[in-house]
Write a protein that binds this DNA or RNA. Sequence first.
DNA 1: CGGCAAAGTAGACGAGTGTCTACGACGATG
DNA 2: CATCGTCGTAGACACTCGTCTACTTTGCCG
Lengths: 241, 241
Amino acid sequence: MKTDSGVAPGTATLRGKAAAAPQTGRQRLMAAALQLAATTRSLASLGLREVARQAGLNPNTFYRHFKNFDDLGLAVIEELAGELRQGLRERRRRPLGDALRLDAAKDPLELMRRAEGIIQESVALVLEFVTEHQQAYVVGIRELHGTSPVLRGALRKVFDELATDMAEDMLEIVPPQFVDAQAVHGIAAVVIREMAFYSLDYLEQPARRDQIRTEAQRFILMLLWGGMAMRMPQVLAARAR
Amino acid sequence: MKTDSGVAPGTATLRGKAAAAPQTGRQRLMAAALQLAATTRSLASLGLREVARQAGLNPNTFYRHFKNFDDLGLAVIEELAGELRQGLRERRRRPLGDALRLDAAKDPLELMRRAEGIIQESVALVLEFVTEHQQAYVVGIRELHGTSPVLRGALRKVFDELATDMAEDMLEIVPPQFVDAQAVHGIAAVVIREMAFYSLDYLEQPARRDQIRTEAQRFILMLLWGGMAMRMPQVLAARAR
DNA sequence: CGGCAAAGTAGACGAGTGTCTACGACGATG
DNA sequence: CATCGTCGTAGACACTCGTCTACTTTGCCG
C-alpha cells in the first residue's frame, strides 16, 4: 500500500532523505503541502491525509502542529516570505554600489539610459531567484487570488512589503526630484505583481525565456518613463535645449 | 435535509425560480458551478455532487452534459467570455464618437490631457461592468492562476482577446505615430490584468472604491505616458519650443 | 533513574465523494 | 402508433476524507 512518496520516518530508518529532507514533522508537513499545492491543487483545498501521506506521516500528526489549513498556509507563507524578501534584498543590493548612484544633476535621458542597465540586471536576478523557488512562487501567486481570505491577506502583505523594499531601492537610484515618491510605491507594487505574472510564464515556457525577460525589462522601463513624464514633462522637454 | 439552495425541478413543481432561473439542466449546472466557485472554492476542486445539489439536480445529470470538470469550466468560460467581450466593446465604443478622435497633428501634451478624460470614462465603465458580473470576474482571475492548465490556457486566451480589443481601440484614439503599435498591445494586456486585480479590491472594499478608481486611472495614464516617452522623447521635448 | 510533556501511531466512526448500471419520462421523427 | 435518442432519476459500490479517543515512542530536565 505504501507507494513511493514518503518513507516512514518514525522508528529507526534512514533519516537523510532524497533532497535536503526537513527533519521536524512540522517542516515535513509544510514542505509536503507546498509541493502538493504547487503541483496538484490549491493550498486550501488540500486534504489533511493527503499532506500527511506525502510527508510520510500519520494523518493525525497534522493536529499536533496545525489546527486549520489556513494555519498551515500562514506558516508556509511566513517562512517563505522571510526567505524571499531577504534573498531579494541581498541580491538587489549587490550590483548597486554607490558608484552607480545616479546623479540628480544629470539630465533625465542620461538617467534613464543608466537605469536601463540596472533594470536589466535586476530583472535577471529576480528571474534567477524565481527559478530557484518555483514552488513558492507558483503557490504564492495562486493563493494571492485564492479562496481563503486569510491567505490572501497574508500574501497581500508580503507583496506589499516587497513593493516597499523595491520602492526604497528605486528612490536610491532615481532621485526623488524626478518621480513622485508616492507614485514610486505604486510602480513598485505593479512591477512586483507583473513580475510574478511574468515569472509564471518564465517557468512554464522555457523556450520563450529570453523574450519574456526583455518584455519584462521593457515594461519596467516604460513604467519608469511614465512616472517621470507624468511628474515633469517639462524636465524631459528641458533636455531638448 | 433539503436546505434552501435549490428546488427540485424534475417533475412538476415551479419552473420559474428566484432570480432569472436558467431553464436547461446544462445551464443550471453551469450557473451553480459559477456561484459555488465564486463563493466557496476553486472551480477545479468543486464536487460533482455539490454542484448538482446546488443546481437542484441529480448528481448523475452532470454526466449527461460534461465529462470532466475542465469540460464544465471551459463551457462556463466560453459563455462568459463572449458576454464580457461583447459588453465591454459595446460600452467602450459608446462614449467615443468620431468627434473625440484625437488629432495626430496636435501636440502630445494636449493629446494626453484629452486622453485623461477618455480614460476616466473607460475605467468607470469597466468597473461598472465588473460590479454587474462579480462572480464571473472573481472566478476568472482566480482560475487564470489556478491549477488546471486547460482553464488557464482558455482564460489566457480570453484576456489576450480583450487586450487585442483594447489595443485596437487605443490605436483609434492615440495615433500610431506616438506609440509603438506592438507596445500598445503589451500596454493593453497589462492594463487588462491590472484592472482585473483592481476589480477584486473594488468589489471587496466598497469603502475604498473612489480611491481605487483614481488609482487605476493614474496607472493607465502613466502607462500611456511611458509608452509615448519611450517611443519619442523628442516629441515631448519638441513641445517645449 | 523517574517522570512528564511533546511527537507520532493505531483504529474506528459517519459523512461525503466519483463512478457505474439500470430505469422512467418525454419529445421528435418515421 | 412505434421507436429511438436525450434528459433526468434511483440505488449501490468502493473509496477518501475529517475527526475522535486511546496508546506508544521519544527526548528532556531535575
